[in-house]
Design a binder for these strands. Structure first.
Length: 479
RNA sequence: GGCGCCAUAGCCAAGCGGUAAGGCACGGGUCUGCAAAACCCUGAUCGGCGGUUCGAAUCCGCCUGGCGCCUCCA
C-alpha cells in the first residue's frame, strides 16, 4: 500500500490552483484549523468543517506524515460576554462548559483530537508580544487604549481573498471609527469597558481582538509558519486575510501558510445555516439520533470545497448508504475461515480489491477527492456482497472486507456498527427471543415468529433471517 | 456598488474538451414461509439562447434563477 505522498496535490485558496504538497519540514505537517467561538451550542455546520479537516488529517497521517494539528477556541468575545450576562454567569463558566461539550461531541463524531487546543485567554503573553512587535515595526498603532493594525502598511493585503483594498474601502458598511487611520484598520487590542473581562498589557487594560489570537497561536504552537491553514470559506475575509497581514508582518517572511484550505458551507435549502437565520441543527441532536457517521458520509460524498445542501432526506439516504458499506465490510457469516482454494470469482475480487486501493489513493491524492474515493468503496461493496453469496469462505473475500474496513477507517468511519447502549443492555434477552423464534420457525409457527420480529422492530432491533441463521442489529428507528 | 460561486435524473452529488461516477428513493425480477439484507435489470444530454471546436455538461458571451463574502460566522 502506497504511503508516500509524492503525488498529492492540494487546492490553495491563495493561488486559486492545485499545488503539489511539500511541507516545510519533510515528513511533518503543521496544520492550523480555525476553531469556534464558544458562545453557543455547536451546529452541524461546525461538524461538517471539523469532519473535513479530520479527513484531511487522517489521510495525511495515513500517508505517513506526522501531523501537528492545532485548533483554537476563541473564548473571549462580545457575544460570549453578552451571552454570559444574559445567563447571569461568569464568561469563563460559559466557555468552559461549551468547550467541554465541544470536545465530547467531536469525539463522538469520530474526530481525532487535535494535538493542541489553545485558547485565546491562555495565550495573552504571546498575543501581547506580537502586538508589541507589530507596533515596533510600524504595522500597528495605539489609540486610547485600543491598538489597530495599519492595513496600508502591508502591501500584500488582499492577496488571499483577491480583493483590492481600494474596493473594500468604498464598499465598507461598517460604521467608520474616526480614531482609526484608515477604515480598513482592524483591532488587535480592545480597551476594557466596564463589566468586561480584561487583562493588563503595555497598551492598557483590555482584551485581544479576534484575528490576533490565531497568528499568535501559530507562532507559539506551530513555529510561526504553517503548512496548512484551514477553516470555512466564510473565514477567508477578513479573518484569514488579517492573519496573513499580522503574521507575515511580524515574522518578516512569507508565506505564513503554504496551503490555505477552505471548506464549503453547509446549506439549508437555499440558505447558509446560521444562528441568525434560526435554521440550525445542533451536533447534539445529530448524535442523539445516532447519525454521526451517516452525516460524515453525507459530508464526504460531496467535495469539501463545494457547498453542501442539507436535508433530512439526504441524511436518511446517507444513513442507508452507510449501512450498505458496513454490511459489506463486516459481513457476518463465515468471516475468519478463509478457503485457500479460492474460486475464479475470488480471483476477480482480489483484482478488484487491488484496484480499489489504486482508485482510492488516486482520488485522495487529487485534493482529497472523497466523492470519487467513496464511489470506489461502494463498487467494492457490491463485489463483496456478490462474492459472499457465491463463495462465502474465500480468502479474497476476507481480504476485500479488510480493505473496505481499512479504507473506511482512513476516512474516519467506524466500520463496525456501533452498539447502542440499549442494545447492549438488552442483548442477552434479544438473543433469547431470537433463539425461541428459531424454534418456532422450524415448527412453522409463522405468526408467532413474525410477532417477535415485528415487536423487536418496533423497539429498534432488526432481525434478518439468512441461510446461516438469524442475525439482529440495532437500528435507529423509534427508540 | 465590489469580489466570487453555483444551476447535472424524485433527492444528495461527481464530472475540469471526447459522447454523463457513486449513494438514496421509485419500478420490475431472483432469493426467502413472509420480511429484511443481498444480487440482477430499469432512469438524465447536463437552467435557457448564441458562439468557439472535428467534437462541450466541460471553453467564451448574453439571459434567467439561486447563493456566499464585503459586519460576528466553520
Amino acid at each position: 500500500m502506497p504511503r508516500d505522498a509524492g503525488n498529492l496535490v492540494i487546492y490553495d485558496t491563495r493561488s486559486r490552483s492545485k499545488q503539489p504538497f511539500q511541507t516545510i519540514e519533510p515528513g511533518q505537517v503543521r496544520m492550523y484549523v480555525c476553531g469556534v467561538t464558544v458562545y453557543d451550542d455547536a451546529h452541524i455546520g461546525h461538524a461538517m468543517s471539523v469532519m473535513v479537516f479530520d479527513m484531511i488529517r487522517r489521510y495525511l497521517e495515513y500517508r505517513g506524515y506526522v501531523v501537528r494539528h492545532a485548533q483554537n477556541f476563541t473564548d473571549i468575545d462580545d457575544k460570549i460576554i453578552t451571552r454570559a450576562n444574559r445567563e447571569g454567569i461568569n464568561p469563563n463558566d460559559l466557555t468552559g462548559r461549551l468547550i467541554s461539550n465541544w470536545l465530547s461531541e467531536t469525539l463522538a463524531l469520530n474526530v481525532l483530537p487535535a494535538t493542541v487546543y489553545p485558547r485565546a485567554t491562555q495565550e495573552l503573553p504571546a498575543i501581547i508580544a506580537m502586538i508589541e512587535g507589530l507596533i515596533d515595526r510600524g504595522h500597528a498603532y495605539p489609540v486610547e487604549g485600543d491598538v489597530y493594525y495599519r492595513v496600508r502598511s502591508f502591501p500584500g493585503y488582499g492577496k488571499l481573498s483577491h480583493r483590492d483594498p481600494d474596493d473594500l474601502r468604498s464598499g465598507a458598511r461598517i460604521d467608520v471609527d474616526e480614531r482609526k487611520d484608515d477604515p480598513l484598520d482592524f483591532a488587535l487590542w480592545k480597551a476594557v469597558k466596564p463589566g468586561e473581562p480584561s487583562w493588563p498589557s503595555p497598551f492598557g487594560e483590555g482584551r485581544p481582538g479576534w484575528h490576533i489570537e490565531c497568528s499568535a497561536m501559530c507562532t507559539t504552537h506551530l513555529g510561526g509558519f504553517v503548512d496548512i491553514h484551514g477553516g470555512g470559506t466564510d473565514l477567508i475575509f477578513p479573518h484569514h486575510e488579517n492573519e496573513i497581514a499580522q503574521s507575515e508582518a511580524f515574522l518578516g517572511g512569507e508565506p505564513f501558510a503554504r496551503y490555505w484550505l477552505h471548506n464549503g458551507m453547509l446549506r439549508f435549502g437555499g440558505e447558509k445555516m446560521s444562528k441568525s437565520l434560526g435554521n440550525m441543527v445542533t451536533v447534539r441532536s445529530l448524535l442523539d439520533r445516532g447519525l454521526g457517521d451517516a452525516f460524515r458520509l453525507m459530508v464526504l460524498q460531496s467535495h469539501y470545497r463545494a457547498p453542501l445542501t442539507y436535508s433530512e432526506e439526504a441524511l436518511a439516504g446517507a444513513e442507508r448508504g452507510l449501512e450498505r458499506l458496513r454490511t459489506a465490510a463486516g459481513g457476518g457469516g463465515a468471516v475468519g475461515r478463509p478457503d485457500t482454494t479460492a474460486p475464479a470469482l475470488g480471483d476477480a475480487l482480489a483484482g478488484q480489491t487491488a484496484d480499489t486501493w489504486r482508485r482510492f489513493f488516486i482520488a485522495m491524492d487529487d485534493d482529497f477527492d472523497t466523492p470519487a474515493a467513496i464511489a470506489a468503496l461502494f463498487d467494492l461493496a457490491r463485489s463483496i456482497n456478490r462474492e459472499a453469496a457465491s463463495s462465502p469462505t474465500s480468502a479474497s473475500l476476507v481480504a476485500a472486507r479488510t480493505t473496505l474496513g481499512d479504507l473506511m477507517g482512513v476516512l474516519g468511519f467506524d466500520p463496525a456498527r456501533p452498539t447502542s447502549t440499549a442494545g447492549a443492555d438488552a442483548s442477552p434477552f434479544i438473543d433469547l427471543l431470537v433463539t425461541i423464534r428459531e424454534t418456532m420457525r422450524k415448527e412453522r409457527h409463522w405468526a408467532l415468529a413474525d410477532q417477535i420480529r415485528d415487536g423487536l422492530a418496533d423497539r429498534g432491533v432488526t432481525l434478518e433471517d439468512g441461510p446461516a441463521g438469524t442475525t439482529w442489529r440495532a437500528t435507529s428507528g423509534p427508540s
